[in-house]
Simulated assay, not measured.
Amino acid sequence: MLRSMYSGISGMKGFQEKLDVIGNNIANVNTTGFKKGRVTFQDMLSQTTTGASGPTDNRGGVNPSQVGLGSQVGTIDDLHTQGSSQRTDNPLDLQLEGDGMFAVEKPDETTAYTRAGNFYMDEDGDIVNADGYYLQGDGNGTDGELKIPDEATSINIEQNGTVTYVDEDGNIDKSQQIRIAQFSNPAGLEKTGNSLYTNTENAGLNTDNDDNLVEPEKNGAASIVSGALEMSNVDLSDEFTNMITAQRGFQANTRIITTSDEILQELVNLKR
C-alpha cells in the first residue's frame, strides 16, 4: 500500500485532536480562571532509502534520502498567561496578578490548586470555593482554614492576602492571611475538572515552607486583587483562526487519501 495513505491518516488524527482542544478552549471562553490549551505536532519516523556517505578522494559526500511516514501530536500544553480582569466589587471575589495559585483543601484532605477566585462564606464563616473546598491560609482558622465571624463587618482582602474585618467589639482584626502556591512550571499541573489542578512531579511546587504555601507579593509571588475575577485567557480571534487552519489541514490530508486511492485504482485497472 502507498505510504502517503498512512501519512494522510496520521495527519487527520492529529488535526482532529487539535480541533478537540480548540473546541474546549471556545467552550470555556467565559470560565473563570481557565487557561487555554495548545497542540504542537512532530514528524514521525522516516524510512531511509539511501544512507549518507562522507567525501572520499574521488567523490564528494552524499546526503541521506528519507521518506517521512506522517505526523503525530507532540504536546498538548496549557498556556498559563494572565487572563483579563472583570470587576465585581464583591470582597470575596479574588484575582491573582502574577504567578501563583490559590490552594483549597478537598474533603479527602488533599490540596488542589486553582486560579478561579470566586469564593464565598459558608454557614460557619469559613471561606470556601464553589464546591465547598476550604481556602488555605494562615491565622486563627483550623488546619489552615480561614474563618470570618458572623458578626464581622467591613470585610476586606489586602493585596498581600491579609484578611481584615471589624469584629463585634469594633476592633480591626488582621490575624489571618491567604497563602498561595508557587510553581516553577505551572504547565506541568494536571487538570482534574471544576477549574482545579493537582500537583505533579514536573510542576515544580515551591516547598520552602512546611505547608508549601507562600505569602503573596513576596519573592515574585502574585498579588491579590479583591473585588475582581480573572477571566479565561482564551482569545476567540486566535481560536477561530486556529480552527480554520486545522480544518484546512484536515481537508488536505483527506485529499491525500483520495489521491492515493485513485492511484491504487489505476493499478488495479491495469489488467483490464
Rank of each mutant, 00 (worst) to 15 (best):
M5I: 15
M5Q: 08
I9H: 02
I9W: 02
G14Y: 03
G14L: 03
Q16L: 07
K18Y: 04
I22K: 10
A27E: 09
V29C: 06
V29G: 03
T31H: 07
T32S: 10
R38I: 04
V39I: 09
M44Y: 01
Q47M: 07
T48V: 15
T48S: 13
T50R: 15
P55N: 10
T56S: 12
N58L: 08
G60A: 12
P64K: 09
V67S: 13
G68E: 01
L69H: 08
G70V: 02
S71R: 14
D78M: 06
H80D: 14
H80P: 07
H80Q: 13
T81I: 12
T81P: 02
Q82N: 09
G83A: 05
S84T: 13
Q86N: 07
T88S: 10
L92S: 05
L96C: 06
E97W: 01
G98M: 09
G100D: 07
K106T: 15
K106N: 14
D108S: 00
T110L: 10
Y113I: 11
Y113N: 12
T114A: 07
F119Y: 11
M121Y: 01
E123C: 00
E123N: 06
E123F: 03
D126N: 14
D126Y: 05
D126L: 08
N129I: 14
N129P: 15
D131T: 10
G132Q: 01
Y133H: 15
Q136L: 06
N140K: 13
T142A: 02
G144T: 03
G144R: 00
G144A: 01
L146H: 00
L146G: 00
L146R: 00
E151C: 03
A152F: 04
T153N: 11
N156F: 00
N156Y: 01
I157G: 01
G161V: 03
V163Y: 00
Y165V: 01
Y165Q: 02
Y165R: 07
G170N: 12
N171L: 05
K174T: 08
Q177D: 00
Q177H: 00
Q177Y: 01
I178G: 00
Q182C: 03
F183V: 13
N185I: 06
E190D: 12
E190I: 07
N194Y: 08
L196Y: 13
N199Q: 15
E201M: 12
A203W: 05
G204N: 07
L205E: 07
N206D: 14
D208A: 13
D208G: 05
N212T: 06
E217A: 04
K218L: 04
K218S: 04
G220W: 04
A221G: 12
S223M: 00
V225T: 10
G227C: 15
A228N: 11
E230V: 13
N233G: 13
N233H: 05
D235P: 10
L236S: 14
T241V: 13
N242F: 09
I244E: 15
Q247A: 12
R248T: 10
G249E: 14
T254W: 04
I257Q: 09
T258D: 12
T259C: 03
E262S: 10
I263G: 06
I263A: 05
L264M: 15
E266N: 11
L267V: 14
K271T: 08
K271R: 08
